[in-house]
Design a protein around this nucleic acid. Structure first.
Lengths: 180, 180
DNA sequence: TTCACTTTTTGATATAGGTCAAAAGAAAAT
DNA sequence: ATTTTCTTTTGACCTATATCAAAAAGTGAA
Protein backbone atom coordinates (compact mmCIF):
# COMPACT_ATOMS: atom_id res chain seq x y z
CA UNK A 1 0.00 0.00 0.00
CA UNK A 2 1.42 3.37 -1.00
CA UNK A 3 1.63 5.36 2.24
CA UNK A 4 4.29 7.95 3.02
CA UNK A 5 6.46 7.37 6.07
CA UNK A 6 4.70 10.12 7.99
CA UNK A 7 1.36 8.56 7.24
CA UNK A 8 2.59 5.15 8.27
CA UNK A 9 3.93 6.53 11.54
CA UNK A 10 0.62 8.14 12.29
CA UNK A 11 -1.28 5.01 11.41
CA UNK A 12 0.91 2.79 13.52
CA UNK A 13 0.50 5.15 16.48
CA UNK A 14 -3.16 4.18 16.55
CA UNK A 15 -2.27 0.55 17.20
CA UNK A 16 -1.29 -0.87 20.55
CA UNK A 17 1.39 -3.53 20.68
CA UNK A 18 0.97 -6.23 23.31
CA UNK A 19 2.39 -9.57 24.28
CA UNK A 20 -0.43 -11.98 24.98
CA UNK A 21 0.14 -15.30 26.72
CA UNK A 22 -1.41 -18.49 25.42
CA UNK A 23 -4.89 -19.50 26.48
CA UNK A 24 -6.00 -15.91 26.92
CA UNK A 25 -9.49 -15.15 25.72
CA UNK A 26 -9.80 -11.99 23.64
CA UNK A 27 -13.46 -12.03 22.69
CA UNK A 28 -16.37 -13.83 24.30
CA UNK A 29 -19.55 -15.02 22.67
CA UNK A 30 -22.29 -12.42 23.19
CA UNK A 31 -19.92 -9.48 23.64
CA UNK A 32 -19.71 -6.74 21.06
CA UNK A 33 -16.12 -6.83 19.96
CA UNK A 34 -14.49 -3.40 19.78
CA UNK A 35 -11.04 -4.52 18.72
CA UNK A 36 -9.31 -5.68 15.61
CA UNK A 37 -6.09 -7.61 16.11
CA UNK A 38 -3.10 -8.03 13.90
CA UNK A 39 -0.91 -10.98 14.79
CA UNK A 40 2.80 -10.31 14.55
CA UNK A 41 3.67 -13.70 15.97
CA UNK A 42 1.74 -16.46 17.65
CA UNK A 43 -1.53 -18.14 16.85
CA UNK A 44 -5.20 -17.59 17.58
CA UNK A 45 -8.48 -19.26 16.83
CA UNK A 46 -12.15 -18.41 16.82
CA UNK A 47 -14.73 -20.95 17.85
CA UNK A 48 -18.31 -21.28 18.96
CA UNK A 49 -20.36 -23.69 21.00
CA UNK A 50 -22.80 -25.84 19.09
CA UNK A 51 -26.15 -27.04 20.44
CA UNK A 52 -24.46 -29.92 22.20
CA UNK A 53 -22.12 -27.42 23.88
CA UNK A 54 -19.11 -28.64 21.92
CA UNK A 55 -16.44 -26.18 20.80
CA UNK A 56 -16.36 -25.81 17.05
CA UNK A 57 -13.29 -24.12 15.64
CA UNK A 58 -14.33 -21.59 13.06
CA UNK A 59 -10.99 -20.21 11.97
CA UNK A 60 -7.27 -20.17 12.74
CA UNK A 61 -5.27 -16.95 12.62
CA UNK A 62 -1.55 -17.22 12.02
CA UNK A 63 1.15 -14.56 12.10
CA UNK A 64 0.84 -11.76 9.60
CA UNK A 65 -2.96 -11.96 9.62
CA UNK A 66 -5.74 -9.82 10.96
CA UNK A 67 -7.89 -11.48 13.57
CA UNK A 68 -11.41 -10.47 14.60
CA UNK A 69 -14.86 -11.73 15.16
CA UNK A 70 -15.66 -10.28 11.77
CA UNK A 71 -19.43 -9.93 12.11
CA UNK A 72 -19.21 -8.46 15.59
CA UNK A 73 -16.40 -6.05 14.90
CA UNK A 74 -17.69 -4.73 11.60
CA UNK A 75 -21.40 -4.62 12.34
CA UNK A 76 -20.96 -4.03 16.08
CA UNK A 77 -23.33 -6.81 17.00
CA UNK A 78 -22.89 -9.47 19.70
CA UNK A 79 -20.24 -11.92 18.70
CA UNK A 80 -21.21 -15.45 17.77
CA UNK A 81 -17.65 -16.54 18.46
CA UNK A 82 -15.02 -16.75 21.10
CA UNK A 83 -11.51 -15.74 20.15
CA UNK A 84 -8.59 -17.14 22.07
CA UNK A 85 -4.83 -17.11 21.77
CA UNK A 86 -3.42 -20.62 21.33
CA UNK A 87 0.30 -19.79 21.37
CA UNK A 88 2.05 -16.91 23.12
CA UNK A 89 1.59 -13.99 20.76
CA UNK A 90 2.64 -10.48 19.96
CA UNK A 91 -0.36 -8.60 18.74
CA UNK A 92 -1.18 -5.12 17.45
CA UNK A 93 -4.69 -4.07 18.34
CA UNK A 94 -6.89 -1.16 17.35
CA UNK A 95 -10.37 -0.15 18.44
CA UNK A 96 -13.24 0.31 16.05
CA UNK A 97 -13.36 4.05 16.77
CA UNK A 98 -9.70 4.57 16.03
CA UNK A 99 -9.92 2.46 12.92
CA UNK A 100 -12.89 4.48 11.68
CA UNK A 101 -10.86 7.63 12.39
CA UNK A 102 -8.12 6.24 10.20
CA UNK A 103 -10.60 5.34 7.50
CA UNK A 104 -11.79 8.96 7.55
CA UNK A 105 -8.30 10.46 7.55
CA UNK A 106 -6.84 8.13 4.95
CA UNK A 107 -9.22 7.12 2.20
CA UNK A 108 -6.51 4.75 1.03
CA UNK A 109 -7.20 2.79 4.20
CA UNK A 110 -10.71 2.06 3.04
CA UNK A 111 -9.18 0.30 0.13
CA UNK A 112 -6.95 -1.68 2.43
CA UNK A 113 -9.99 -2.60 4.51
CA UNK A 114 -11.84 -3.68 1.43
CA UNK A 115 -8.94 -5.76 0.18
CA UNK A 116 -8.47 -7.48 3.53
CA UNK A 117 -12.15 -8.38 3.64
CA UNK A 118 -12.11 -9.57 0.06
CA UNK A 119 -9.16 -11.82 0.74
CA UNK A 120 -10.94 -13.26 3.74
CA UNK A 121 -14.05 -13.82 1.66
CA UNK A 122 -12.08 -15.77 -0.92
CA UNK A 123 -10.58 -17.98 1.76
CA UNK A 124 -13.90 -18.69 3.40
CA UNK A 125 -15.39 -19.59 0.04
CA UNK A 126 -12.50 -21.98 -0.53
CA UNK A 127 -13.06 -23.64 2.79
CA UNK A 128 -16.75 -23.88 2.07
CA UNK A 129 -16.06 -25.74 -1.13
CA UNK A 130 -13.61 -28.03 0.59
CA UNK A 131 -16.07 -28.85 3.34
CA UNK A 132 -19.00 -29.26 1.05
CA UNK A 133 -17.63 -31.68 -1.47
CA UNK A 134 -14.58 -33.41 -0.23
CA UNK A 135 -14.08 -36.50 1.87
CA UNK A 136 -12.68 -36.16 5.38
CA UNK A 137 -9.27 -37.16 4.11
CA UNK A 138 -9.27 -34.63 1.30
CA UNK A 139 -10.33 -31.89 3.71
CA UNK A 140 -7.39 -32.67 5.92
CA UNK A 141 -5.10 -32.45 2.92
CA UNK A 142 -6.62 -29.11 2.00
CA UNK A 143 -5.80 -27.92 5.49
CA UNK A 144 -2.22 -29.16 5.30
CA UNK A 145 -1.86 -27.17 2.11
CA UNK A 146 -3.58 -24.01 3.34
CA UNK A 147 -2.09 -23.87 6.85
CA UNK A 148 0.95 -26.15 6.87
CA UNK A 149 2.35 -24.73 10.08
CA UNK A 150 -0.86 -24.76 12.05
CA UNK A 151 -1.43 -28.46 11.59
CA UNK A 152 1.47 -29.19 13.92
CA UNK A 153 0.94 -26.60 16.63
CA UNK A 154 -2.70 -27.23 17.31
CA UNK A 155 -4.53 -29.99 19.14
CA UNK A 156 -6.26 -32.69 17.19
CA UNK A 157 -9.69 -31.77 18.50
CA UNK A 158 -9.39 -28.14 17.41
CA UNK A 159 -8.40 -29.15 13.92
CA UNK A 160 -11.04 -31.85 13.65
CA UNK A 161 -13.87 -29.48 14.50
CA UNK A 162 -12.45 -26.91 12.10
CA UNK A 163 -12.62 -29.52 9.37
CA UNK A 164 -16.09 -30.69 10.30
CA UNK A 165 -15.20 -34.16 11.48
CA UNK A 166 -14.73 -35.94 14.79
CA UNK A 167 -11.32 -36.25 16.36
CA UNK A 168 -11.50 -40.01 16.07
CA UNK A 169 -11.84 -39.69 12.32
CA UNK A 170 -8.93 -37.27 12.10
CA UNK A 171 -6.80 -39.53 14.23
CA UNK A 172 -7.51 -42.43 11.86
CA UNK A 173 -6.69 -40.30 8.84
CA UNK A 174 -3.35 -39.31 10.31
CA UNK A 175 -2.58 -42.91 11.07
CA UNK A 176 -3.40 -44.07 7.57
CA UNK A 177 -1.31 -41.23 6.10
CA UNK A 178 1.70 -42.07 8.24
CA UNK A 179 1.61 -45.75 7.33
CA UNK A 180 2.37 -44.83 3.73
CA UNK B 1 -25.32 5.82 1.95
CA UNK B 2 -25.11 9.61 2.08
CA UNK B 3 -24.56 10.67 -1.52
CA UNK B 4 -25.87 13.89 -3.04
CA UNK B 5 -28.20 13.60 -6.00
CA UNK B 6 -25.52 14.80 -8.37
CA UNK B 7 -23.14 12.19 -7.10
CA UNK B 8 -25.77 9.48 -7.40
CA UNK B 9 -26.52 10.53 -10.97
CA UNK B 10 -22.88 10.35 -11.86
CA UNK B 11 -22.46 6.99 -10.18
CA UNK B 12 -25.48 5.51 -11.88
CA UNK B 13 -24.24 6.73 -15.26
CA UNK B 14 -21.35 4.31 -14.91
CA UNK B 15 -23.73 1.37 -14.81
CA UNK B 16 -25.35 -0.21 -17.84
CA UNK B 17 -28.91 -1.45 -17.53
CA UNK B 18 -29.78 -4.56 -19.50
CA UNK B 19 -32.53 -7.14 -19.80
CA UNK B 20 -31.04 -10.60 -19.84
CA UNK B 21 -33.05 -13.66 -20.84
CA UNK B 22 -32.96 -16.84 -18.81
CA UNK B 23 -30.26 -19.44 -19.41
CA UNK B 24 -27.75 -16.84 -20.54
CA UNK B 25 -24.22 -17.37 -19.32
CA UNK B 26 -22.51 -14.26 -17.95
CA UNK B 27 -19.17 -15.63 -16.81
CA UNK B 28 -17.36 -18.80 -17.83
CA UNK B 29 -14.92 -20.81 -15.79
CA UNK B 30 -11.36 -19.81 -16.68
CA UNK B 31 -12.27 -16.31 -17.89
CA UNK B 32 -11.20 -13.24 -15.97
CA UNK B 33 -14.44 -11.58 -15.10
CA UNK B 34 -14.46 -7.85 -15.74
CA UNK B 35 -17.99 -7.13 -14.67
CA UNK B 36 -19.94 -6.73 -11.48
CA UNK B 37 -23.69 -7.18 -11.76
CA UNK B 38 -26.51 -5.79 -9.69
CA UNK B 39 -29.76 -7.67 -10.07
CA UNK B 40 -32.83 -5.47 -10.20
CA UNK B 41 -35.09 -8.40 -10.89
CA UNK B 42 -34.60 -12.01 -11.84
CA UNK B 43 -32.35 -14.69 -10.51
CA UNK B 44 -28.81 -15.91 -11.11
CA UNK B 45 -26.54 -18.61 -9.84
CA UNK B 46 -22.84 -19.38 -9.79
CA UNK B 47 -21.61 -22.95 -10.10
CA UNK B 48 -18.55 -24.95 -10.93
CA UNK B 49 -17.80 -28.39 -12.26
CA UNK B 50 -16.38 -30.87 -9.77
CA UNK B 51 -13.89 -33.62 -10.63
CA UNK B 52 -16.70 -35.85 -11.80
CA UNK B 53 -17.86 -33.07 -14.12
CA UNK B 54 -21.03 -32.45 -12.15
CA UNK B 55 -22.38 -28.92 -11.75
CA UNK B 56 -22.15 -27.70 -8.18
CA UNK B 57 -24.18 -24.62 -7.35
CA UNK B 58 -22.07 -22.26 -5.33
CA UNK B 59 -24.46 -19.41 -4.74
CA UNK B 60 -27.84 -17.99 -5.72
CA UNK B 61 -28.26 -14.28 -6.42
CA UNK B 62 -31.72 -12.81 -5.99
CA UNK B 63 -33.05 -9.36 -6.79
CA UNK B 64 -31.48 -6.48 -4.94
CA UNK B 65 -28.13 -8.25 -4.69
CA UNK B 66 -24.75 -7.84 -6.29
CA UNK B 67 -23.61 -10.80 -8.35
CA UNK B 68 -20.06 -11.61 -9.36
CA UNK B 69 -17.48 -14.32 -9.46
CA UNK B 70 -16.00 -12.64 -6.40
CA UNK B 71 -12.46 -14.00 -6.61
CA UNK B 72 -12.15 -13.37 -10.32
CA UNK B 73 -13.66 -9.91 -10.32
CA UNK B 74 -11.83 -8.57 -7.29
CA UNK B 75 -8.45 -10.20 -7.82
CA UNK B 76 -8.73 -10.30 -11.62
CA UNK B 77 -7.80 -13.95 -11.77
CA UNK B 78 -9.42 -16.71 -13.88
CA UNK B 79 -12.85 -17.51 -12.53
CA UNK B 80 -13.43 -20.82 -10.81
CA UNK B 81 -17.13 -20.42 -11.47
CA UNK B 82 -19.70 -20.07 -14.15
CA UNK B 83 -22.41 -17.51 -13.65
CA UNK B 84 -25.72 -17.93 -15.38
CA UNK B 85 -29.10 -16.26 -15.33
CA UNK B 86 -31.85 -18.65 -14.23
CA UNK B 87 -34.86 -16.36 -14.65
CA UNK B 88 -35.29 -13.45 -17.09
CA UNK B 89 -33.53 -10.58 -15.38
CA UNK B 90 -32.97 -6.85 -15.41
CA UNK B 91 -29.40 -6.20 -14.46
CA UNK B 92 -27.13 -3.21 -13.91
CA UNK B 93 -23.55 -3.96 -14.76
CA UNK B 94 -20.28 -2.12 -14.29
CA UNK B 95 -16.74 -2.95 -15.35
CA UNK B 96 -13.85 -3.24 -12.95
CA UNK B 97 -12.18 -0.16 -14.46
CA UNK B 98 -15.23 2.02 -14.06
CA UNK B 99 -15.82 0.76 -10.56
CA UNK B 100 -12.23 1.56 -9.61
CA UNK B 101 -12.74 5.02 -11.13
CA UNK B 102 -15.73 5.46 -8.88
CA UNK B 103 -13.76 4.25 -5.88
CA UNK B 104 -11.15 6.89 -6.65
CA UNK B 105 -13.63 9.68 -7.20
CA UNK B 106 -15.87 8.86 -4.26
CA UNK B 107 -14.03 7.61 -1.20
CA UNK B 108 -17.44 6.97 0.31
CA UNK B 109 -17.79 4.24 -2.29
CA UNK B 110 -14.88 2.36 -0.75
CA UNK B 111 -16.90 2.12 2.38
CA UNK B 112 -19.87 0.83 0.42
CA UNK B 113 -17.61 -1.74 -1.20
CA UNK B 114 -16.27 -2.78 2.12
CA UNK B 115 -19.76 -3.10 3.61
CA UNK B 116 -21.05 -5.16 0.68
CA UNK B 117 -18.11 -7.52 1.00
CA UNK B 118 -18.51 -7.77 4.74
CA UNK B 119 -22.18 -8.64 4.37
CA UNK B 120 -21.30 -11.30 1.85
CA UNK B 121 -18.64 -12.64 4.17
CA UNK B 122 -21.16 -13.00 6.99
CA UNK B 123 -23.52 -14.91 4.73
CA UNK B 124 -20.86 -17.26 3.49
CA UNK B 125 -19.77 -17.94 7.05
CA UNK B 126 -23.38 -18.74 7.94
CA UNK B 127 -23.68 -21.15 5.08
CA UNK B 128 -20.41 -22.73 6.04
CA UNK B 129 -21.68 -23.39 9.53
CA UNK B 130 -24.93 -24.77 8.21
CA UNK B 131 -23.15 -27.10 5.83
CA UNK B 132 -20.52 -28.16 8.29
CA UNK B 133 -22.65 -29.23 11.21
CA UNK B 134 -26.20 -29.80 10.20
CA UNK B 135 -28.05 -32.77 8.80
CA UNK B 136 -29.33 -32.67 5.24
CA UNK B 137 -32.81 -31.85 6.51
CA UNK B 138 -31.62 -28.99 8.69
CA UNK B 139 -29.62 -27.56 5.81
CA UNK B 140 -32.72 -27.52 3.64
CA UNK B 141 -34.58 -25.71 6.39
CA UNK B 142 -31.76 -23.18 6.65
CA UNK B 143 -32.16 -22.58 2.94
CA UNK B 144 -35.92 -22.16 3.18
CA UNK B 145 -35.30 -19.52 5.84
CA UNK B 146 -32.48 -17.72 4.05
CA UNK B 147 -33.87 -17.76 0.50
CA UNK B 148 -37.59 -18.55 0.81
CA UNK B 149 -38.41 -17.41 -2.72
CA UNK B 150 -35.57 -19.22 -4.44
CA UNK B 151 -36.60 -22.62 -3.17
CA UNK B 152 -39.61 -22.55 -5.45
CA UNK B 153 -38.13 -21.11 -8.62
CA UNK B 154 -35.13 -23.35 -8.92
CA UNK B 155 -34.73 -26.95 -10.01
CA UNK B 156 -34.19 -29.63 -7.40
CA UNK B 157 -30.75 -30.53 -8.67
CA UNK B 158 -29.46 -26.95 -8.44
CA UNK B 159 -30.65 -26.64 -4.85
CA UNK B 160 -29.37 -30.06 -3.84
CA UNK B 161 -25.86 -29.32 -5.04
CA UNK B 162 -25.96 -25.93 -3.34
CA UNK B 163 -26.79 -27.69 -0.09
CA UNK B 164 -24.17 -30.36 -0.54
CA UNK B 165 -26.47 -33.32 -0.98
CA UNK B 166 -27.77 -35.44 -3.85
CA UNK B 167 -31.05 -34.66 -5.51
CA UNK B 168 -32.43 -38.00 -4.37
CA UNK B 169 -31.85 -36.99 -0.77
CA UNK B 170 -33.48 -33.61 -1.27
CA UNK B 171 -36.45 -35.21 -2.97
CA UNK B 172 -36.90 -37.52 0.03
CA UNK B 173 -36.64 -34.62 2.45
CA UNK B 174 -39.32 -32.70 0.60
CA UNK B 175 -41.54 -35.73 0.59
CA UNK B 176 -41.17 -36.29 4.31
CA UNK B 177 -41.83 -32.59 5.00
CA UNK B 178 -45.01 -32.58 2.92
CA UNK B 179 -46.40 -35.65 4.63
CA UNK B 180 -46.58 -33.71 7.90
C1' DT C 1 -51.32 -35.72 -29.45
C1' DT C 2 -47.34 -37.82 -29.69
C1' DC C 3 -42.49 -38.14 -29.27
C1' DA C 4 -38.19 -36.81 -27.23
C1' DC C 5 -36.06 -34.98 -23.45
C1' DT C 6 -35.52 -33.41 -18.77
C1' DT C 7 -36.54 -33.58 -13.96
C1' DT C 8 -38.23 -35.89 -10.00
C1' DT C 9 -39.40 -39.88 -7.39
C1' DT C 10 -38.81 -44.50 -5.61
C1' DG C 11 -36.38 -48.71 -4.21
C1' DA C 12 -32.39 -51.53 -3.05
C1' DT C 13 -27.87 -51.60 -1.48
C1' DA C 14 -23.29 -49.81 0.05
C1' DT C 15 -20.21 -46.98 2.80
C1' DA C 16 -17.98 -42.99 5.04
C1' DG C 17 -17.87 -41.36 9.02
C1' DG C 18 -20.42 -40.79 13.49
C1' DT C 19 -21.11 -42.52 18.37
C1' DC C 20 -19.86 -44.72 22.51
C1' DA C 21 -16.58 -46.73 25.50
C1' DA C 22 -12.27 -47.79 27.00
C1' DA C 23 -7.18 -47.94 26.78
C1' DA C 24 -2.85 -45.69 26.02
C1' DG C 25 0.01 -41.76 25.98
C1' DA C 26 1.42 -36.89 27.31
C1' DA C 27 1.47 -33.03 29.99
C1' DA C 28 0.74 -30.58 34.15
C1' DA C 29 0.37 -30.29 38.97
C1' DT C 30 1.47 -31.69 43.62
C1' DA D 1 8.13 -39.25 41.38
C1' DT D 2 3.47 -39.91 41.40
C1' DT D 3 -1.03 -38.59 40.77
C1' DT D 4 -4.34 -36.07 38.16
C1' DT D 5 -5.97 -34.28 34.05
C1' DC D 6 -6.07 -33.75 29.23
C1' DT D 7 -5.30 -35.61 24.57
C1' DT D 8 -4.95 -39.19 21.28
C1' DT D 9 -5.71 -43.81 19.72
C1' DT D 10 -8.24 -48.04 19.06
C1' DG D 11 -12.25 -51.09 18.54
C1' DA D 12 -17.13 -52.33 17.82
C1' DC D 13 -21.17 -50.94 16.13
C1' DC D 14 -24.69 -47.87 13.82
C1' DT D 15 -26.86 -44.44 10.88
C1' DA D 16 -27.34 -40.80 7.51
C1' DT D 17 -26.68 -40.23 3.13
C1' DA D 18 -24.45 -41.71 -1.27
C1' DT D 19 -24.79 -44.62 -5.30
C1' DC D 20 -26.96 -47.10 -8.88
C1' DA D 21 -30.87 -48.23 -11.49
C1' DA D 22 -35.29 -47.81 -13.09
C1' DA D 23 -39.96 -45.89 -13.12
C1' DA D 24 -42.90 -41.90 -13.14
C1' DA D 25 -44.02 -37.28 -13.94
C1' DG D 26 -43.43 -33.01 -16.28
C1' DT D 27 -42.23 -29.95 -20.32
C1' DG D 28 -41.79 -28.52 -24.84
C1' DA D 29 -41.50 -29.04 -29.82
C1' DA D 30 -43.29 -30.80 -34.13
Amino acid sequence: MPFTNDELDDILKHFKKEAIPKNQMLVRQGEVSKTLYFIESGLGRSYYLNQAGKEITQWFFGSGKFMASADSFFQQCPSLYFIEVLEDAVIYSITKEKLDELFDTYPKMEKLGRLVTTEMLTKVVNKLNAIQFQTAKERYEYMLAEFPDISYQVSLGHIASYLGMTQETLSRIRKSNSRK
